[in-house]
Write a protein that binds this DNA or RNA. Structure first.
Length: 290
DNA sequence: CACTTGACCTGTCCGC
DNA sequence: TGCGGACAGGTCAAGT
């Protein structure tokens, strides 16, 4: 579910809500969602205060004063929702809330803070996970060692972006865009949206994408991700922010989940097919396979 | 090493 | 209404 803009939205929300809070207890319904040794939990999590909330690619990092970090991946259906004790943000709230009382049946991990508030990790499909590890070891995780640069960093240039694709010359551009070791944080929504913006067919071989097309793809990807962060991310099904509310980027999407509707640029009917193993949306007039 | 496919899970939607 | 199958925003491991 969540891609870079969604994870960043959760990060910003959590940053404002949980910094300085002290963890009093943790419960989980499945070891898969929280695969940590009880001794580590007792020593480095319980009683620890939260000092920072960071993000790298689609991974959330909640730093603790014990110099341990909660490393969290939401995968397809993960949610991290904060609730003040006794107050249900879901009930009686405007219709931007997707969930009601917590915990619910998808709640996998519950953190209870010393003041009685809670942080819930919900995950319908159980692909996601929360792991506790020393802060200094986080960069040594295989994923962190292999993951590509952050596309929204100010000093990340179009030239660097283009170079990252060089070794994937024979891949369809969409598969390479989704490859986290090329560039961090791109998922199915922003791959389709940025390829439409740059007028590139998703099955175009990387080696056939011109320098100018890469330049356009680079700026479209950054624009679409920045716009999404501004809109609080995309809620297609499950995604909610740290307060349990939906994001609205999907209302601004040009092709994603808009099959059968007109292309906003030329009016041609948008089609959906399978590319790189994923549902893929294009305008067949604007995006032509070379 | 580059590239593709299937697996991991649960829920929902669509066609019969 | 019931049931089987396809599909869902992400990685991994194992295959070629």
């Amino acid at each position: 579910m969540p891609e870079l803009p969604e994870v960043e939205t959760v990060r910003r929300g959590l940053y404002d809500l949980i910094i300085g809070r002290e963890i009093k207890a943790v419960e989980h319904d499945t070891p898969k969602s929280f695969p940590n040794a009880a001794a580590d939990v007792e020593q480095f999590l319980i009683g620890a205060k939260i000092t920072d909330v960071r993000r790298r690619a689609k991974v959330l990092l909640i730093d603790l004063a014990t110099e341990y970090t909660l490393v969290i991946h939401l995968k397809m259906t993960g949610q991290l929702v904060f609730r003040v004790a006794g107050i249900a943000f879901g009930a009686g709230h405007p219709n931007d809330s997707l969930i009601g009382e917590l915990p619910d049946r998808s709640t996998r991990v519950t953190f209870t803070f010393a003041d009685g508030s809670h942080l819930y990790f919900n995950d319908q499909r159980k692909f996601g996970w929360v792991r506790l590890m020393p802060t200094l070891e986080v960069p040594n995780i295989d994923f962190m060692k292999k993951v590509g640069p952050e596309p929204l960093e100010h000093d990340f240039t179009a030239e660097q972006f283009t170079e990252r694709f060089a070794r994937r010359a024979k891949s369809p551009i969409k598969a390479a865009l989704l490859d986290q070791t090329v560039v961090a944080g791109v998922g199915n929504i922003y791959a389709d949206e940025s390829l439409w913006g740059a007028k590139i067919h998703p099955l175009t071989k990387v080696g056939d994408v011109t320098k100018n097309e890469f330049k356009k793809l680079y700026s479209e990807l950054r624009d679409v991700m920045n716009l999404s962060i501004e809109k609080g991310g995309s809620t297609d099904r499950n995604y909610v922010n740290a307060e349990g509310k939906k994001g609205s980027y999907i209302d601004f999407a040009r092709v994603f989940r808009r099959e059968g509707k007109p292309c906003p640029r030329c009016g041609t009917t948008i089609i959906k097919f399978k590319a790189a193993g994923r549902g893929t949306h294009i305008c067949p007039h604007c995006q032509v396979l070379k």
